[in-house]
Design a protein around this nucleic acid. Structure first.
Length: 610
RNA sequence: GGCCCCGUGGUGUAGCGGUCUAACAUGCCACCCUGUCACGGUGGAGAUCGAGGGUUCGAAUCCCUUCGGGGUCGCCA
């Protein structure tokens, strides 16, 4: 072994011990005579003192050392002199008096600082990811990730879950995200797809009788990326037989509370986790993953504005659209510029504009002089008062209202379908502006009773909201034929602080129910057989009732590490354009490789023309 | 695919039409320094401003294109 101890492990109790350490030069302080070296290894940092009088050769080597040089140092652990202790580091009570210093490997000056937490260009960080990972912040993140995954495995194993691997070379998913495709050499012209999730396999494991399965599974989706999305990501995939929704919620609430206690006991994690319906989440917050750390709830004003002469409001109400808004406590003081910025926020989400009404008196005493609004002359004091009353406004508050017209595609700018997303964005912008979200709180919640299907305008059909194996809420079975859009499913999410952490559902386990859903989704019998024949058949061999959940590991650890970007939790992440700046993946392959696979590339221009 | 932001010594920034023969901090190099811990002191090297084109007497600064990175909407069963 190169070393007898880890730098970061040494304590006052080790005083008097002879040690051999190996690590990197974190910092060097050369006093001409004495040289101090902060030596870093995977466990932490310790100060080494090299005195030319008691180790001239060691001193010479220490003189040559520079930042990030790899050193082996022999010496004795000694208590620091009175007054030179450093209580900012765990090893600060002691230091290592060097008797020998050996340079194991020199190092070029790194392209960025390893020893401080500065903001570095992402591009550079990704190119030299192995150096970025040396920095304390990422190092700690990766360690925390391990601790969480280890706890998950232990927790589930203790409860009788079995970890089972499923194939990475699988079949394409006909719906949902774009697949990553892998050509088959043995079957020219045929392809595997990398799994978007192990969905079908885990259900088949339930049919196989394991009852409690989990897996830390890599998943692949070829879609555009975000701060919380990578082309390959990890999920805790879990499935249980003979359970109801609340069994799964209870299991995961306990798991997440356990994780919080284990890795972040300092954070405030309110429990029990609220269970709110999808409909309530949308109505109150305009989002299916609301941040529940603050209020700023939405108010529906549509019924109040039918009589107004203000065309924007009335037009929206009359056309079956929506007029909704948020009351901002103390917001009456916002400047024109501030409101303009908020207007820009909602416009980017498809709102036509933002109507503001500032109140400088209570609703009971409201006059023309105590309402400030660009539209006051259209709506009048009376409507301003009724809107304020509905929203619970007080003197000094500001009402911000978005109107959207009905009768047009939901994703069209200015449509009623844009009102909720606009107000969701507005709500989050306001919370940030007013600093309403307590950084040290993790407010988890289950969002339940999600819709079964949603209408796809482009394809002119119903699409599954969760996935096509999701079972129907028993109260809504009668609506399946008449009003599919309002059918609830047994699907649920776990959300936290505005993040969607997990999705799951109770699955269909009977063939006839599955076929009925396939029919609703416009999958004809021939396709059912071709794509899902194995599932339908499996359901005929005694499939148990079952359901599951699949939290994103990257997002989960990001939440606990208080990072806003999952790239900070992944050792080797990809850029927004799904490339790896360190290894340069993806790359073209040699024509002979394509040849073996029976593939031929189209010229670039031909592909662009499609 | 749309919209938005960014790209200046190794790193982080400033400069936003002539005063830029590009500034500051830090890092780097050399010398001095025996108790520092973001050690200190003195001196020095180091970028033609992502790339290409254009406007102009003159461009890091304005315009266009392009590449790369990021944010966001669409998309993500």
């Amino acid at each position: 072994m190169y070393k007898t101890h880890y730098c970061g492990d040494l304590r006052a109790s080790d005083a008097g011990t002879d040690v051999v350490l190996a690590g990197w030069v974190h910092r060097r302080r050369d006093h001409g005579g004495l040289i101090f070296i902060d030596l870093r290894d995977s466990r932490g940092i310790v100060q080494v003192v090299v005195n030319p009088e008691d180790a001239p050769e060691a001193h010479a080597a220490a003189s040559d050392a520079r930042g990030e040089y790899v050193l082996r140092i022999a010496g004795r652990v000694e208590p620091r002199r009175q007054g030179t202790e450093n209580d900012r580091i765990p090893t600060g009570a002691i230091e290592v008096r060097a008797t020998g210093v050996e340079i194991l490997n020199p190092a070029k000056t790194p392209p960025f600082y390893i020893n401080e937490d500065a903001d570095i260009d992402e591009q550079l960080r990704l190119k030299y990811r192995y150096l970025d990972l040396r920095r304390e912040r990422l190092h700690n993140n990766i360690v925390m990730r391990h601790r969480i995954v280890a706890e998950i495995r232990r927790y589930l194993t203790d409860r009788g879950f079995i970890e089972i691997e499923t194939p990475v070379l699988a079949n394409p998913t006909p719906e949902g995200a774009r697949d990553y495709i892998v050509p088959s050499r043995v079957h020219p012209g045929e392809f595997y797809a990398l799994p978007q999730s192990p969905q079908q396999f885990k259900q088949l494991l339930m049919v196989a009788g394991f009852e409690r399965y989990f897996q830390i599974a890599r998943c692949y989706r070829d879609e555009d990326l975000r701060a919380d999305r990578q082309p390959e990501f990890t999920q805790l995939d879990l499935e249980m037989s003979f359970v109801e929704q609340s069994d799964i919620w209870d299991l995961f609430e306990e798991l997440y509370l356990h994780l919080a206690r284990t890795v972040r006991p300092d954070l405030n994690v309110p429990s029990p986790f609220p269970r709110i319906t999808y409909a309530d989440a949308m109505r109150r917050f305009g989002s299916d993953k609301p941040d529940l750390r603050y209020g700023l709830e939405l108010n529906d004003f549509t019924d109040l504005v039918r009589e107004t002469e203000f065309a924007v409001f009335r037009g929206a109400a009359d056309s079956g659209g929506a007029v909704e808004g948020i009351c901002v406590p103390g917001g009456a003081e916002f400047s024109r510029k501030e409101i303009d910025a908020l207007t820009e926020t909602v416009k980017q989400l498809g709102a036509r504009g933002l109507v503001s009404i500032a109140y400088t008196a209570g609703m009971e005493a409201l006059t023309e002089e105590s309402v400030r609004s660009p539209v006051l002359k259209f709506i009048g004091v009376d409507l301003a008062r009724r809107l304020g009353e509905r929203a619970g406004a007080n003197s000094g508050d500001l009402l911000l209202i978005v109107a959207g017209a009905g009768g047009m595609p939901a994703k069209e700018p200015g449509s009623a379908g844009r009102v909720k997303p606009s107000l969701d964005a507005l709500r989050r912008a306001l919370a940030q502006k007013l600093d309403l979200a307590d950084r040290n709180t993790l407010q988890f919640a289950f969002v339940v009773d999600a819709p079964l299907v949603e209408w796809n305008d482009e394809e002119d059909r119903w699409d599954a909201v969760h996935h096509l194996f999701t079972s129907v809420h028993s109260d809504d079975l009668h609506l399946l034929d008449t009003d599919p859009g309002s059918v609830r499913s047994n699907a649920y999410d776990l959300v936290c602080n505005g993040w969607e952490l997990s999705s799951g559902s109770i699955r269909i386990h009977r063939r006839e129910e599955q076929v009925r859903i396939f029919e609703l989704l416009g999958i004809i019998p021939e396709q059912q057989q071709e794509r899902f024949g194995h599932m339908l058949e499996a359901f005929e061999y005694g499939a148990p009732p079952h359901g599951g959940f699949a939290p994103g590991i990257d997002r989960t650890v990001a939440i606990f590490a208080q990072e806003t970007d999952i790239r900070e939790m992944i050792a080797f992440p990809k850029t927004k354009s799904a490339s790896d700046l360190m290894t340069n993946a993806p790359t073209p392959v040699d024509p002979s490789v394509l040849d073996v696979l029976g593939l031929q590339l189209k010229p670039r221009t031909a592909r662009d023309g499609q």
